[in-house]
């Protein structure tokens, strides 16, 4: 049983086809890298998988369950979590509150108008654990507006991890990070247990090449090459996309 199976997925904005019959099968526990130059349709593919955009045709299956028509806000409840390439966090809140919101999203407590959110020790405790996993436990009380860019990238990951996803979609988690910060994030990703299937987008091939087990190369909304790391690197079409023109 594959963790995520995308079949014949198509999406066009007006006349522009951003994904053209994309097929993607990711096995459970796999580390998959999706590469491609800017405008290849990588983020759109994520948006289609998470349901933020509705596909024109095709299907998305999560662990044998067809979720093509499942509302996007239901998908995290089915074990799918994502991060954003453009950091999308709650600036007015503390780091801890950001992660707590991620946990609350999957808890039925989120509808409660009577309880006190700060009086939910098990929720707060789990949020702290998630922060500890990304090495930010000491900054829990800091308002997000006073954190560095690199810290925010990690908060993004902490929020996704806090939801205990079965499939984790990472949209350029290394974007804009320094070499040291990249190393930290790498270590962090390596520590994620095998139960979690990870799909990562990266447009810079070198950054995450040795992390990936299988690589999919996307170009103009189409899957050009797919295979193991060695296969994709050796494929002439990869060179053409990245070095050609």
């Amino acid at each position: 049983m594959s963790a995520l199976a995308v079949t014949q997925l198509c999406k066009a904005f007006g006349g522009l086809r951003v994904t053209a019959s994309v097929n993607l099968t990711v096995e459970a526990g796999e580390r998959r890298l999706i590469i491609g130059p800017n405008g290849a349709g990588k983020t759109t593919l994520f948006n289609l998988i998470t349901g933020e955009i509705a596909p024109d045709s095709g299907s998305i299956v999560l662990f044998d369950r067809d979720i093509t028509r499942v509302a996007s806000y239901r998908r995290p409840h089915l074990g799918m979590a994502r991060t954003y390439q453009i950091i999308t966090l709650f600036d007015k809140d503390t780091i801890l509150r950001n992660v707590t919101l991620a946990l609350l999203g999957l808890s039925s407590l989120r509808w409660s108008p009577f309880t006190d959110l700060d009086g939910q020790p098990q929720l707060i405790e789990r949020a702290r654990e998630a922060l500890a996993r990304v090495g930010l436990a000491h900054l829990a009380a800091r308002p997000l507006s006073q954190t560095s860019y690199g810290e925010r990238r990690r908060v993004e990951i902490a929020m996704a991890l806090a939801q205990n996803p079965k499939v984790l979609l990472l949209d350029e988690p290394f974007a804009g990070l320094s070499i040291d910060e990249r190393r930290d994030v790498r270590a962090l990703l390596n520590a994620i247990p095998r139960e979690v299937t990870i799909v990562m987008i990266e447009h810079n091939m070198d950054v995450a090449l040795d992390w990936a087990e299988r690589i999919t190369l996307l170009h103009f909304g189409k899957v050009i090459v797919e295979g193991t790391r060695a296969e994709v690197v050796a494929d002439p079409r990869t060179r053409e996309v990245y070095l050609g023109h």
């Binding site: 995290p76 999308t88 966090l89 709650f90 609350l104 407590l109 409660s112 108008p113 309880t115 006190d116």
Partner: peptide
């Protein structure tokens, strides 16, 4: 009570980052 409640926090979340709230599982 409402302001401090989880629902109050959810509501503020939809004000600040509707898209993220949706991706976190909030309707």
């Amino acid at each position: 009570v409402f302001v401090r409640s989880p629902f109050g926090a959810s509501l503020r979340g939809t004000r600040d980052q509707a898209r993220r709230m949706n991706a976190l599982g909030y309707n």
